[in-house]
Amino acid sequence: MELDAKIGVLNNAGGSSEVSLNGIKVVCGINGPMEARPRQELPTTCYLEVIIRPAIGNPTVREKYMEDKIKNFLNSVIIGNLYPRQVIQVNLQILEKKNNNSSYTSDSDESAATEDVLLELNCCINSAFLALVDANISIYKAFNSNIFTYTHKGSLVKDGLSEAKSRHLVVYGIKNNKVDELLYGENVGRFSEKKLFMALERGEKESMILHSKLKELSVESVKQKFVYLS
């Protein structure tokens, strides 16, 4: 499904974005850099706080788990030493989750919740990137996330179908218009080593395509922000 994104949707946040992808809609707001509470303060770098709120209900352990996944690589992307003793807060609110599951039992809900982790992460990561750009936070490299699935027949398809043999979420960092490094990869299901690397290679290509799209959007937003310069 095509990515649909907007930048600067929240007026009071430092930076914000709204992304809908694969039936999931996420709004991301960035607050900071701002003063840290004494407990969070790090002397040489910034403290990164990622908060995910689900579409329905209160955040649970599942959201904590997703926050951790995002925090892991985001820490290395943000140039932390520019913001010592400060906090950068990344708030991600999942707005919509298309439930294509018509089943009714509680246990299929549960497996769907686990299945959706990757789809939600995918959307959150792309949204976080746009919001970081909007918030003028210095980053070492751009990044974006793509999701791929192997069907039962063995073909590699972009975007996540629930009926799949394996699913691969790949996040690449992009520097100077070139794929720089693999920031995060989550691969679940049944797959071989060869298939894993094929998915990673495909991820490299697709992330360049997605990057040019996100870049267009962010260039537009920067232009609008600094309109007095031109």
Partner: peptide, 29 residues
């Protein structure tokens, strides 16, 4: 890894967390 299967698809989960040193293909292998 799934070491019991004869199948080619012998991996159940691979999670790669980058950000520190560069994760190369060789190192994943």
């Amino acid at each position: 890894p799934d070491i019991n299967t004869e199948d080619d698809d012998n991996l159940v989960s691979v999670t790669i967390i980058g950000g520190g040193s560069k994760v190369t293909k060789q190192s994943i292998q």
